[in-house]
């Protein structure tokens, strides 16, 4: 008679447990996720945290310096050229950057994943057509096209999100195509086909769960990409319009005082850098944690 030691069974960690363990040991994942979570929290709670109304002007209080440059705690990060509280604008600005990042990634993710999975799963003519669309998209200069289209429609948060969403799907398509190709001949996909499952069902229940980790990595990459591009467009005056506190716009408004009050561009610039850095760390972390064999 064989005796099964129950301890032996429970001590072997399941893949999910292994993943959780890798996640808790991965510094980039923890720091990136933590900082991003903090920024999201600050953005959501901006109405409660912000010491002042981000739009309230006070021309007698212009260009006050931050507290670490000899300013007062009344305006911890100083004030801008219209006397608006810089900390409050920074907090509300996080809402704009995050909205741009999430919504753009959602739109471009849906477009790119649909194209990529279709190309990878069906192959043949579908693949040829999708590859052609990707090639055409890649050959168009993103910044130039985005600027031109925003100029035609008039700059606003909605325009910027839509334009970027319809431009930044290429990486989703490329990566989802390759990932789908890699698993479409796996046994579990073949057996689902043999069982007579519908294509929709196979894609949703067999393909998607297995390419989800790559999808998350691309989502983080493209979120970061969209946030940087929005800031650049707003900086050039063809993105989010004043008086909204977009970080790119804050840098543009501070540019005139570049030589006298560099904190006006340093603060929103560092905010942008930290946000992008955190998102990238999280993305790299997700890749390492979910597929440690892909690390190089």
């Amino acid at each position: 008679m064989t005796i099964i030691d129950s301890n032996e069974i429970t001590t072997a960690p399941s893949p999910a447990q292994q993943m959780r363990r890798r996640a808790l040991r991965h510094w980039g994942f923890l720091i990136g996720g933590g900082v991003l979570g903090l920024i999201i929290l600050m953005a959501v709670l901006a109405p409660f945290f912000a010491p002042h109304d981000p739009y309230a002007q006070d021309l007698s209080q212009r260009f006050l310096r931050p507290v670490f440059l000899g300013g007062s705690w009344e305006h911890p990060l100083g004030t801008d050229h219209l006397g608006r509280d810089y900390l409050s604008r920074l907090l509300f600005g996080a809402q704009i950057s995050l909205t741009i990042g999430f919504v753009t990634a959602l739109i471009s993710g849906v477009i790119g994943t649909t194209l990529g999975v279709a190309a990878g799963y069906f192959g043949g003519r579908v693949d040829t057509i999708v590859m052609f669309i990707i090639t055409v998209r890649l050959s168009m200069p993103v910044v130039l096209v985005a600027l031109a289209v925003v100029a035609l429609f008039g700059g606003s948060l909605t325009t910027v999100v839509l334009v970027l969403g319809f431009l930044l799907w290429d990486q989703f398509a490329v990566v989802m195509r390759t990932s789908t190709q890699q698993i479409r001949n796996q046994d579990y996909v073949t057996s689902a086909q043999a069982l007579g499952c519908t294509t929709t069902r196979i894609i949703l229940t067999e393909v998607m769960p297995n390419i989800l980790n790559n999808l998350i990595v691309i989502i983080t990459l493209e979120m970061a990409h969209a946030i940087i591009l929005e800031a650049a467009l707003s900086f050039l005056g063809l993105g989010v319009q004043p008086p909204l506190p977009s970080w790119g716009l804050m840098i543009a408004e501070g540019k005139d005082m570049l030589f006298f009050e560099p904190f006006l561009i340093t603060i929103p610039g560092i905010a942008l850098f930290v946000l992008i850095f955190a998102i990238n760390l999280l993305g790299d972390g997700v890749r390492d944690v979910t597929a440690p064999e892909n690390r190089n």
Binding site: A231, G248, F259, I265, F273, I276, N280
Partner: peptide, 21 residues
């Protein structure tokens, strides 16, 4: 990692402040 997180327009302004001004 720094290069990927640095917005080019901001990097430009910082370089201008440091090396040109």
């Amino acid at each position: 990692v720094v290069g990927q997180a640095m917005p080019t327009f901001w990097f430009s302004l910082i370089l201008i402040v440091i090396f040109a001004v």
